[in-house]
Every structure is written in C-alpha cells, then in structure tokens.
Amino acid sequence: MSVLVQEADFDVGAEMANMRAGRADIGALVSFTGLVREMPNGSEMVLEHYPGMTEKALQKIDAEARARWALQDCCIIHRYGPLEAGAQIVLVLTASPHRKAAFEAAEFIMDFLKSRAPFWKKEAGQGWVDAREADETALKRWR
C-alpha cells in the first residue's frame, strides 16, 4: 500500500513497473491518471491541500477500497502546488487477480478522492473551483 502527496510529478510507467516487480500473481493492473484540463481563460491552476489530513483521508479511502475488493496492491499519488494545463494531478493504481475488482476499486477511489480528500483547486484568473453536485452524487452508488 502506498499513499503519496507530493509537489513533484510522477512517472506512471515506473509506478506500474514498481507494483509488478518481483511477483507474478497479479492478473489485472488498472491505472487512472487525472490531468489538468485546458481552460478557456488561463491555463494554470494551484492545488491547495491540508498537510496531515490529506494523507489520513487518502489512507482511509485506500483502506476502504481494500476492505471491499480483493486487491493485491493499491497506490495513490496526488500532487499539489502550481499545475499547468496538461499536467498530471493524480495517479491511482489497483492490482487484483481479475480485472473487475481492479477496475471497480480504481473508480471507487477516484469517486471518494474527488470530494473526501482535502484538496482545493484555484484557477488562474478564475478563482476557486466550485465543488460539483455530480461528484457528491457519484458517492451514492457505493453505499
């Protein structure tokens, strides 16, 4: 298990290789990468977070995913600080013997991370990004 909150970028290929290294029991390795979408007005944003609580919140989401699905491994990397359009923001990796668990767990983690991990986006020239109702609704299907 690993949860990382960092300003630095990450290497998706290297993280996936790292998860597979030294084992041959994984049948499905799912990777989700969230990117900064280009915005019409201004293409930079800053991601603020709550050091300490962020790590705890992500670890809790990670633990819940592991309790619900038979995951062999799981990794969440979330960046903070200034991020330009096209930049990687978040990486979720899930590994399981068969694909269903890995796919579902990755989606579950992303759904919770969106509105339960203490991050706030501010777009250059646009101000703070409002939370989306759809993100809150997305949590309901996991109840």
Binding site: M53, H78, K114, A117, P118, W120
Partner: peptide, 10 residues
C-alpha cells in the same frame, strides 16, 4: 479545528 469549502480533489 479546520474550516474549508467543499473539497475539489482529483
């Protein structure tokens, strides 16, 4: 104690 707006991660 911390106060903040609804979270917008991911």
């Amino acid at each position: 104690v911390a106060f903040f707006p609804p979270m917008t991660g991911g």
